[in-house]
Design a protein around this nucleic acid. Structure first.
Length: 586
RNA sequence: GCGCCUGUAGCUCAGUUGGAUAGAGUACCAGUUUCCGAAACUGGGGGUCACAGGUUCGAUUCCUGUCAGGCGCACCA
């Protein structure tokens, strides 16, 4: 519709210039927008105001000329000029009613767009370290990432959803060590649990599994293990050196294969838990990409070689540094430590190079806002390897600050004091949790009150939308009980009977859906879809209270049932994109 | 100190990329069910869009500065 209006204005403009009624100027982009107020018609255009200065004419005068030279088209009833020079278009009843037929004809595919056709997009999100269960902080990234992915699919993109598994590195060593120590404790060894180890209950569960599987195979005497390990912090030592010392002990005492078994047990049980958790949350992935596989395939070394060849690395204090300052970063970054080990940053360079080499047109990373300082250096590394860094889009999600009532909730995976995503889901349900997370813009700080989400879950807007859907279903159940049927053909013929204000509001709301999907997808703003669904539901509830659908006037009744069916379809399509269920009864 | 994000109704937040009289939910007050589900609807009060300048036909939106809050500034991941 917008495109057609733009075309009409464009031809009117060029006609005027040819007739020399308007001086020849650089034509700005023609903008058509939906009006906020019904009095201003359905669509408005501000072109006259934009042309006023370059053409040196009064904007209302320009608007008059434009409207006069526009040709009559059947889908427009009337064109007004208002205010400082807005051109307001009033659509004909026939064209607004057409949307109902479009919705029903397209069904589940209504609203899908082709803007992304032929373009491959990779979306990487959550990617939490597998050192513990997901907590509510990860929930926002999971909900946001999966809805952004669904939106991009609805917009025609070929989407690849990926989780980057940090299955290498020190944090995982600490987890393995934590499991081992809990296992030793279960075997009856006496010692003080390190302050820096993972303390969550899930570690105890994994340790119990280990004991059940291996018996006392991995048991060593505490006195032997702790003998020459640096002291822990409470004993006046260093907690980092203490835990690292214990990890080294685990490696030497258990041997490579024993340690690997321990390590993998921890990794796999937690990863399995995360996968199941995300699946239950309605978040699915196309690929789980292992950091370890990256190391073993030699991609990291390759990336480092590439950087060395482009003279982007230099050696200082025994380490290799990347010249990220050349690309606007605040300081240079280490990629190979003086002990020869590559840094996490080196892995990330290689991972992004790998992503680019897989041929995606766009690579989207969804990160917590605490990683924002990381963006410049990753982009810098890509540029240094002669890649177009614009292909990488990093979307930052602000933290949800947890409250229990008015009290802030402290969260630490290490201490085990956190609210898991699973707990949240069990309390408020998948649908409410997803909707709640996605209701706010990603760059908006969010206050997440657990009490509110848990105890007042019926106040959650998701029920408002689901109820609208259930109500439509209920209408059709009622219809069947009265031995009546919905006749879509008759309904479509009599759509002209839909003249009530509430019906007009619903018709324009339905017509907006494809625009909402497209702009939500391209701008990565799922909250626009969430708000749209609430608006549409409100329009429906209002209509429902004002008018009856099952009435003696059969023509009007069929027309209304047809309209309401279209509403049901659009709510269904929208909630499906959001990964929220559509119960027929509640 | 530097960088990123934010500041809109009592509270939680929208505001369609610069448009017309700034909107929802919630809370509060007052109403609506012999009739398709009251998890709904109708009405009401509630605002210096943090503050000060600038850009222009026009600013909550863009620019600069100030104030306030969150986060980040490792040879950790």
């Amino acid at each position: 519709m917008k495109a057609q209006l733009i075309k009409i204005i464009q031809t009117a403009l060029t006609d005027l210039i040819q007739q020399e009624k308007l001086s020849e100027v650089d034509l700005p982009e023609i903008q058509i927008e939906r009006t906020k107020d019904k009095l201003h018609g359905d669509f408005a255009c501000n072109i006259a105001m934009m042309l006023a200065k370059p053409a040196k004419m009064n904007p209302r005068q320009i608007a008059n000329l434009l409207v006069d030279s526009m040709k009559d088209v059947d889908f427009i009833d009337r064109i007004d000029i208002a205010g400082p020079g807005f051109i307001n278009f009033f659509l004909s009843a026939k064209s607004t009613q057409q949307i109902v037929k479009d919705v029903l004809a397209s069904g589940n595919t209504f609203g899908r767009s082709q803007v992304g056709k032929g373009k491959r997009v990779q979306v990487e999100f959550v990617s939490a370290n597998p050192t513990g269960p997901l907590h509510v902080g990860h929930g926002r990234g999971a909900a946001y990432g999966s809805v952004v992915s669904s939106l991009l699919m609805a917009a025609g993109f070929d989407v690849h959803r990926e989780y980057y598994v940090n299955d290498a590195g020190r944090q995982m060593d600490i987890l393995a060590t934590s499991v081992w120590l809990r296992y030793l404790d279960a075997c009856g060894e006496q010692f003080t649990f390190p302050s820096n180890a993972y303390k969550g209950d899930y570690v105890l569960d994994i340790a119990a599994t280990l004991k059940a599987d291996k018996g006392e195979l991995f048991r060593y005497q505490a006195s032997e293990i702790f003998a020459d390990v640096p002291l822990d912090e409470p004993q006046g030592g260093d907690k980092e050196l203490h835990i690292d010392g214990l990890t080294n002990k685990a490696k030497t005492l258990l041997g490579e294969s024993g340690y690997r078994q321990l390590f993998d047990l921890g990794l796999n049980s937690i990863l399995a838990d995360i996968r199941a958790d995300l699946a239950d949350f309605g978040t699915v992935y196309d690929e789980w990409f292992s950091e370890r596989s990256l190391m073993e395939s030699g991609v990291i070394d390759q990336a480092i070689e590439t950087l060395k060849n482009s003279k982007s690395l230099y050696e200082k204090d025994g380490a290799w540094w990347f010249r990220s300052t050349d690309y606007g970063d605040e300081k240079d970054r280490v990629v190979v430590r003086d002990n020869g080990q590559t840094t996490y940053f080196a892995s990330d360079i290689a991972y992004h190079l790998n992503k680019f080499n897989r041929g995606f047109d766009t690579v989207i990373d969804i990160w917590g806002s605490d990683h924002h300082g990381y963006v410049p250096r990753v982009k810098a590394s890509l540029e240094a390897m002669n890649e177009n860094a614009d292909r990488l889009k990093v979307l930052l999600v602000q933290f949800a600050v947890l409250y229990r009532g008015s009290e802030k909730v402290a969260m630490s995976t290490r201490s085990g004091d956190f609210v898991t995503l699973r707990e949240l889901r069990e309390e408020v349900g998948k649908d409410a949790a997803r909707f709640f997370y996605v209701l706010r813009g990603a760059d908006q700080h969010m206050d997440f009150d657990l009490e509110l989400a848990k105890t007042q879950s019926t106040d959650n807007p998701v029920y408002y939308v689901q109820y609208a859907y259930a109500r439509v279903c209920s209408v059709f159940r009622q219809l069947a009980e009265r031995n009546l049927v919905w006749d879509q053909v008759q309904g479509e013929i009599h759509l002209t009977r839909l003249v009530e204000e509430h019906e007009q509001a619903l018709l324009t709301a339905l017509a907006r859906y494809p625009e909402v999907i497209e702009s939500s997808a391209l701008n990565h703003t799922p909250h626009i879809l969430a708000h749209y669904l609430m608006d549409l539901s409100r329009d429906f509830h209002t209509y429902y209270n004002a008018h009856h659908f099952i009435i003696d006037d059969l023509e009007l009744s069929q027309a209304r049932l047809t309209l309401v069916s279209a509403v049901k379809q659009v709510i269904y399509n929208g909630l499906t994109v959001m990964g929220v269920s559509t119960p027929e009864t509640m």
